[in-house]
């Protein structure tokens, strides 16, 4: 996506570009990434619902959402496969931006300021903060655990591939990983909601200039510095 500095003809609405506004808007995700994200998100939500249906009897009623127990059991792993593929397409595009750096250490050490909303005490950040990166890597790792253990537990096709003691461990890990990913998911969603103005990054693809200034100033400065700015309307 990088455009050599000084190039004027930034494509309208392309990622990491600024629309002068008013109000100023920054394009955070192009449509491809957004579709990709929502496929991933919906998969995980369906997995969570279908998985939890089997996780505990009190949640078994959730199978009704999928057309009954048999359907739930059948669908869940397939959705898992969709999740896995979809997430790792996203992953391939984002992993570099999520590599940790020195600012992340500082950010993390001031976590109380993060929670308290005292952004002014935090270092200026690039496109992602340490929390997002944690979620990113956490999701990635857990999805790998889930797909591997999920396949081992997938009776219909792979029930004979591993021994039963192995499958027992797989299911234990799978449910632990599921719990973990659900926690990560909650964190992710809540962070998106709590940090007002974030959701639109994944719906419309843009954030306001102020949002970018407040949360990811380095990123904003960077694209501004590179002149990735659309002319005002």
């Amino acid at each position: 996506m990088s455009t050599p500095a000084g190039t004027k003809h930034t494509k309208l609405g392309s990622e990491d570009s600024i629309r002068r506004g008013p109000p100023v808007e920054v394009v955070r995700y192009g449509p491809g990434k957004r579709i990709n994200h929502w496929v991933t998100a919906i998969s995980l939500i369906l997995l969570l619902l279908s998985g939890l249906a089997m996780f505990h009897p009190s949640l078994f009623f959730l199978t009704e959402l999928f057309g009954g127990g048999q359907m739930t059991r059948w669908l869940h792993p397939w959705i898992g496969v969709v999740l896995f593929i979809s997430f790792f397409i996203l992953f391939a595009q984002l992993w570099k931006l999520n590599l940790p750096n020195r600012d992340d250490v500082k950010w993390a050490s001031r976590i109380t300021d993060v929670i308290g909303g005292h952004e002014e005490n935090l270092p200026e950040l690039g496109k992602y903060n340490a929390g997002q990166k944690f979620i990113f890597w956490g999701m990635a790792a857990l999805i790998i655990v889930l797909i591997v253990t999920g396949i081992m537990a997938w009776e219909q096709y792979f029930g004979h591939l591993t021994s039963i003691p192995t499958q027992r461990i797989a299911l234990l890990l799978h449910s632990l990983a599921a719990v973990a990913i659900i926690l990560v998911f909650i964190l992710h969603v809540y962070a998106a909601i709590w940090t007002r103005g974030t959701i639109r990054a994944m719906t419309r693809g843009t954030v306001t200039g102020g949002w970018a200034w407040r949360h990811h100033r380095k990123w904003l400065k960077d694209i501004a510095g590179r002149g990735r700015i659309d002319p005002a309307e």
């Binding site: 100023v24 007002r196 200039g209 102020g210 200034w213 400065k221 501004a224 700015i229």
Partner: peptide, 13 residues
Amino acid sequence: VSKHEEEEAKELV
């Protein structure tokens, strides 16, 4: 995000 921050951004841009 505060108004002030939006303005800061505008300025920067």
